[in-house]
Amino acid sequence: MNALSTVKKGQIHTVVALKPKTEQTLIKLMALGIMPGCQVKVEQQFPSYIISMGRTRAALDRETAEEIWVERV
């Protein structure tokens, strides 16, 4: 299990856990469709993280990317 902030670009990972500091962030991540079981791909890491899930794309800062735990598919 790795934090999303540490995985390589282009690989597909499965989200296994969300550990945000605030309930508000958790709700926001879920609304973006980021939740355990979904598959994500990191597209870019600088200046912000850009990840894609299916046909959706989202930008995250490093702190948020550190709160998403993933496993290599």
């Binding site: 945000p20 991540l29 794309r57 989202a58 930008a59 995250l60």
Partner: peptide, 9 residues
């Protein structure tokens, strides 16, 4: 606050 935002096409 944390930054998270959907990126529309």
């Amino acid at each position: 606050g944390g930054f998270y935002m959907e990126i529309p096409p």
